[in-house]
Structure formats: C-alpha cells, structure tokens
C-alpha cells in the first residue's frame, strides 16, 4: 500500500491520536474537558484544534496548496501563542504528527510505504511547522502592537485635545 493510501485509510485513527497528543500538552486536570466537551462555544480550544487539524492533515496528504490551510493553521497557533507555552511548546503540535504517523505505520503488517514517501511526508510537516512559526511571530508581534495602541486609546480624547496625538497616525495603525 502506498503511503498516501495508508494516510487516507487511517485518517480517523491518526487524527484521534494527533488530537490526543496535542491535548496532552495541557495540564492533566484540564485535558478531560478539552478532549470531551463538544460545544464549540463552551470549549473553543478543543473544538478549534479538533476541527482544524483535519484540514491541516488533508492539506499535508494532498499537497499544501489549499487556501484554507493558512486559516486553519492560524486558528490553532493564535490560541497557543497566548497560552502558557514557550514558543517551542506552542509549536510542537505540528512535528508531533510525524511521531503519530510513524507509530501508526509501525502497527501495520504487510507491505507498506517506502522510506522516500515517508521522507516526503515528513518534509511537508516540517514546512507546515515553519509556516506555523511565521504565524506565531505574527501573533506575538500583534500582542505588543495592541499593548502600545491600548495605552494611546485609553486616553485618546485627552491626547487629542492636548495635541499630543495625531489622529491620522493612529488611524493608519
């Protein structure tokens, strides 16, 4: 069986394992909630991860050209960029997919994919991870931009009246 077929056939189990690994990055006392609460408004973190890793997976299996890839990647990274993670912890949810696929492959009997197919898949995962770091940095930069703007907006009218604020410049920001 080709790797592509294997990934398609085992999509459900791989996604479940990938989701579990990601949820394992949260404290044990919280993981039950994040894993099992299905309402998208009561559990936005678990819901977003569960929904969007499927798009990421499909994109990885079928090439990386899908427009939704960027949106789905951003939805997850945006959350993890403000949570209590170091940058590497925040982004580890992507490369962990390589382990999941490898483990799932190991459990299979019979002829399976070639090393070169797996290497190619892993390379795509690495590229996704690098794209993820771009998003992560964009989010972190946004946080600092927001902090600076918030200080201005808090006393916007006072600054404006004392001519300490150029209305155009803040609008441009």
């Amino acid at each position: 069986m080709k790797l592509k077929e294997f990934l398609a056939k085992n999509k459900k189990v791989i996604l479940e394992r990938w989701f579990d690994r990601i949820i394992d990055s949260y404290p044990a006392d919280s993981s039950n909630f994040l894993r099992h609460e299905r309402n998208r408004f009561d559990n936005p973190v678990g819901y977003t991860i569960s929904r969007d890793i499927e798009y990421l997976y499909d994109a990885l299996c079928g090439g990386m050209a899908d427009d939704r890839l960027g949106t789905c990647l951003e939805n997850i990274v945006r959350i993890r960029a403000v949570q209590d993670f170091t940058p590497s912890q925040a982004m580890a949810f992507i490369p962990v997919l390589k382990d999941v696929v490898k483990e799932t492959l190991a459990g299979q009997t019979g002829d399976c994919s070639t090393d070169s197919e797996l290497t190619d898949f892993n390379r795509r995962v690495d590229r996704l991870c690098l794209l993820g770091f771009d998003v992560y940095m964009k989010c972190r930069e946004k946080i600092y931009e927001i902090k600076a703007n918030e200080a201005k907006m808090r006393v916007y009218k006072l600054l404006e009246r004392t001519n300490l604020l150029d209305r155009e410049s803040i609008n441009e920001e």
Partner: peptide, 20 residues
Amino acid sequence: CADKCHYFIGSGDPRNMPVL
C-alpha cells in the same frame, strides 16, 4: 462550575476552575 470560567476555558489551567 469547573468548566464555566472564561479563564479556564481559554487557558486550560486547572486552577482557573472556580472550584479549584
């Protein structure tokens, strides 16, 4: 109350469960 706090929902930190 455990999963009703916005800080718990957003952070996943168990000590943000109101009961904890």
